Computed example of a mutant assay.
Amino acid sequence: MKEKIIILFLLFGAGLRAQTALQNTGNLRIHENGQMGFHTDLVNDGLFDENMGLVGFYGNSEITVSGALNPSFFDAEFVTQKGVTLNNTVNILNNANFVTGDVSSPKSNPNISLNFPKNGFHSGASDISKVNGYASVSDKQSFTFPVGDDTYFRPLILKSQNVNPVARCAYFFENPNTPSTFDTSFSTSARPVDVSSVSTLEFWVLEGSEPSTVELSWNERSAIGSLTEDISEVVLVGWSKASNTWEHLGGPASVGDLFQGVAVSDSFVPNDYAAITFAASAEPRDYLELDDYLVTPNGDNVNDFLEIPQLDQSPNNHMKIYDRNGSKVFDQVNYTNEFNGFSNVDNFVIARDEGLPSGVYFYIVSMEDVGLTFQGFLYLAND
């Protein structure tokens, strides 16, 4: 009751403009364990940045956040039918929980975003709730950008060599030859000899000043089969700002099938490229495809862990495991049979202590000692 009294007092200080918007012209603050729900627009013309507790966006109507100053929320959850539209940046200091409804920002303006500072993270992003526009980070080295479009969640996983002062990302389900929000085009015919074709269906925009690798997933809508029938030929390419051509971004062999899978790049500087998408390599890539595996972590000492005997040849290795949406759920350097159905990465995994849900997962392992990369599938039966 005490927290509710504090919040009501602050709302009087902020002032209500009829029932169409909450206009904050003062100093609005949510104390620890406090909760505030928005069923209407927020016009933030005052201070709203020293918050604890939870801010929720709820209801059947579109909710707009605007104003002269950027609000900062500790925890936020989005449970809307028509989404939340950002006309200025919103900072998430702790957790953004996506439930239903997108958080949208103008794709023509990367300076307006759902921003995650140093300790910010997100959970629950999916096809029905994500960022349709720009998501950004500050003071982070690695991050899964919860971006997509009206229909699909299309995350980009960034892993940088150093902490990024600022990094931004958005997804575009558009033909890069005729992008609607750019003054220039990214001609898919302008490509190097080691790339045979470039996707004309989608691309990502990623800004960042630090050398980084990215991991992207494709789905059935990506139509990878129009690029190649050989998954090992799927690569990532970037539109070079210097040469105005697509460039091969390197990386290990991709993993998956024609309907879902994951591609990983070598290290590059995101700011050197205006767009990133899928392509088909014109040259064969060295990889080793092993058997599929079954993991049943039920304590019977049979298939309780992912065990790959070939890794004995290369103690210096790197294991990555992805779910069917292309989101990384496990990452281990010098893997020695640790995976037993639990995630070890800091991303959107829900109910982490209960283990990952049953289903098909992809894995990519780099064997540094012998200079090989191999890939495959595993089925997790975590019931």
Rank of each mutant, 00 (worst) to 15 (best):
residue 162 N to P: 01
residue 335 Y to V: 01
residue 80 T to Q: 08
residue 201 L to W: 09
residue 218 W to Q: 05
residue 60 N to K: 11
residue 341 G to Y: 03
residue 266 D to A: 10
residue 39 H to G: 15
residue 11 L to Y: 05
residue 272 D to I: 00
residue 16 L to N: 13
residue 159 K to G: 06
residue 224 I to H: 11
residue 20 T to I: 13
residue 118 K to P: 03
residue 82 K to I: 03
residue 240 S to G: 02
residue 331 D to N: 08
residue 3 E to G: 01
residue 200 T to W: 05
residue 58 Y to I: 04
residue 308 I to E: 02
residue 154 R to W: 04
residue 205 V to T: 15
residue 122 H to Y: 07
residue 184 T to H: 07
residue 354 E to H: 11
residue 53 G to L: 12
residue 356 L to Y: 01
residue 214 V to I: 15
residue 27 N to P: 08
residue 338 E to S: 08
residue 38 F to Y: 13
residue 95 N to D: 14
residue 319 M to P: 00
residue 124 G to S: 02
residue 69 L to W: 06
residue 13 G to V: 09
residue 361 Y to V: 01
residue 70 N to I: 03
residue 212 S to A: 12
residue 150 D to T: 15
residue 294 L to T: 12
residue 281 S to V: 04
residue 91 N to S: 14
residue 249 L to A: 05
residue 370 V to Q: 10
residue 222 S to V: 08
residue 373 T to R: 00
residue 263 A to I: 06
residue 185 S to I: 12
residue 293 Y to F: 12
residue 178 T to L: 09
residue 174 E to C: 12
residue 228 T to Y: 07
residue 358 S to L: 09
residue 353 D to M: 06
residue 162 N to M: 14
residue 187 S to M: 10
residue 317 N to T: 01
residue 320 K to Q: 12
residue 90 V to R: 01
residue 103 V to N: 07
residue 114 L to S: 02
residue 275 A to F: 12
residue 160 S to C: 02
residue 4 K to D: 13
residue 95 N to C: 10
residue 144 T to K: 07
residue 194 D to I: 00
residue 138 S to G: 05
residue 143 F to P: 00
residue 8 L to A: 13
residue 60 N to Q: 05
residue 292 D to L: 03
residue 358 S to N: 10
residue 318 H to A: 04
residue 9 F to G: 15
residue 216 L to G: 05
residue 277 T to K: 04
residue 314 S to D: 06
residue 376 G to T: 02
residue 116 F to W: 00
residue 340 N to K: 15
residue 83 G to H: 06
residue 172 F to T: 06
residue 151 T to C: 13
residue 364 I to C: 09
residue 28 L to H: 08
residue 292 D to K: 08
residue 36 M to H: 14
residue 252 P to S: 08
residue 116 F to V: 01
residue 329 V to K: 05
residue 197 S to M: 07
residue 287 Y to I: 06
residue 165 P to T: 05
residue 304 D to C: 10
residue 175 N to K: 10
residue 266 D to Y: 02
residue 340 N to V: 05
residue 270 P to S: 02
residue 33 N to H: 10
residue 67 G to P: 10
residue 42 L to E: 09
residue 186 F to H: 07
residue 48 F to E: 08
residue 104 S to C: 13
residue 281 S to K: 03
residue 189 S to W: 06
residue 79 V to Q: 15
residue 369 D to R: 02
residue 205 V to C: 14
residue 267 S to P: 00
residue 255 V to Q: 08
residue 200 T to I: 14
residue 307 E to P: 00
residue 215 E to V: 09
residue 202 E to Q: 15
residue 371 G to V: 03
residue 114 L to M: 11
residue 35 Q to A: 14
residue 325 N to G: 12
residue 271 N to M: 03
residue 50 E to V: 14
residue 192 P to E: 00
residue 311 L to S: 00
residue 148 G to N: 13
residue 204 W to S: 09
